[in-house]
Simulated scan of single mutants.
Amino acid sequence: MSEHVRWAVNLPLPGLALREHRRIVEALPGMGYDDVWTGEGGGIDAFTPLAAAAAWQPRLGLGTGVVPVLTRGPGVLAQTAASLADLAGNSGSGRVLLGIGTSVPAHVTALNGVAFDRPVARVRDTLRFLTAALRGEPVDAEYETFTVRGFQMPATGVKVVLGALRPRMVRLALDEGDGFVTNLLTPADLARVLAEAGPVPEGREIVAKVFVCPTEDVAYARRAGRAFLGWILNQPPYRAFHDRLGRGGVLARSRELFDAGDRRAAGEALPDGLVDDLWLSGPVPELRDRIARYAQPGVTSVLIYVAPTPGLLSGADDLATVLAGLRP
């Protein structure tokens, strides 16, 4: 396990309203956590929890993993990142990683009514705009997917990372951005992604997101995992990613059912072994050891997403104790 990795927790946490997070967030550095991150899809937005966390616990860094580039204008993304950097810089850590990505049509179009048009080009253009804008450079440019006129703000210190799965996006993230966030992969998959990435310039961030369901109730964990994986693995970017990893045949039946409109059956068609590999479950000490396998050479952060369990939702399991136990 790499000794230099940062450990992070994804917000929101299970069983807590956002307004109830303060006690846990304040305690995270004492548990060995360095950062809090958010994602953005069908739940709450990515930035509000991070603003609250910056106020509650200034020792924590902040990250988004990831924000869709198609649901906000590039200028608004830059302004929001600058606001977070101001909060974090004035209050403590000053570390903000703005993770952006294509997202999927189900989030961009179905929830926001925005066409899922040329997403990879939009990510590239947004990355180029943000890296200039957040350094304080004036931007007046025509990109392939949008035009920005007369934008300038003070330098922020924010790093821009990409949600990246396959080599093309990984390479863009390393060559033009500050690194990448990857997820829904095994430790062996992660090693392959890192090997295929090629040379990594100094100072780049590589973040591995791990989904953890801390319960010994295997049947519950697999049901919960299938409900999530049966949907996400059938989204176009993840289909292509797992095809590259050699799982096209294993996932063929799930894809057939999903395309026929039966999402539940698509989840049920996933092999137990794959669910267990991508949706980690079991007792906390066992999970801690499995999480540690993601802290591979080159990885700078391991981001832990804690899924709801009956014990956490009922209060039978103490969330702070679980979080402290999961940190390798």
Rank of each mutant, 00 (worst) to 15 (best):
E3N: 05
V5L: 04
R6E: 09
P12G: 07
G15Y: 04
G15D: 03
L16N: 07
R19L: 08
E20A: 15
H21D: 04
H21N: 01
R22N: 01
L28W: 08
L28K: 09
G30T: 08
Y33T: 02
G42M: 10
G42L: 13
G42F: 14
G43S: 14
G43N: 12
I44Y: 06
D45L: 11
P49F: 01
A53I: 10
A54S: 14
A55C: 14
R59K: 15
G63Q: 09
P68M: 07
P74M: 01
P74Y: 04
G75Y: 00
L77W: 02
A82C: 02
A82T: 01
S83P: 00
L84R: 09
A85H: 05
V96Y: 13
L98R: 12
I100N: 12
H107E: 12
H107L: 06
H107W: 13
H107C: 11
V108H: 09
L111I: 04
L111C: 01
G113F: 10
G113N: 07
V114F: 00
A115C: 05
R118V: 07
A121G: 11
R122P: 14
R128T: 04
L130I: 13
P138F: 04
E142M: 10
Y143K: 10
T147H: 11
T147S: 15
Q152R: 15
A155T: 08
A155R: 14
A155F: 05
T156A: 04
T156N: 03
G157R: 05
V158W: 12
K159V: 00
K159M: 00
K159R: 15
A164R: 02
L165Q: 09
R168D: 11
R168M: 10
D175G: 07
D178Q: 06
D178C: 06
D178K: 10
V181C: 12
T182D: 10
N183E: 11
L185N: 06
P187Y: 07
D189I: 05
V193N: 06
L194I: 15
A197S: 15
P201T: 03
G203R: 09
I206W: 04
V212N: 09
T215S: 11
T215E: 08
R222E: 12
L229V: 03
L233K: 04
N234I: 01
N234Y: 10
R239L: 14
A240H: 12
L245F: 05
G249H: 05
R253N: 01
S254T: 02
L257S: 05
A260T: 05
R264G: 04
A266K: 01
A266E: 03
G267L: 06
A269T: 13
A269M: 11
A269H: 11
G273M: 08
V275T: 09
D276P: 11
W279R: 00
L280V: 10
G282I: 01
E286I: 03
L287N: 09
R288P: 01
R288I: 00
D289P: 03
D289A: 15
D289K: 15
R290F: 02
R293I: 04
Y294K: 07
A295R: 12
Q296F: 09
T300I: 10
V302E: 01
Y305E: 14
V306T: 14
P308C: 02
T309Y: 08
D318C: 11
L326R: 14
R327Y: 07
P328T: 02
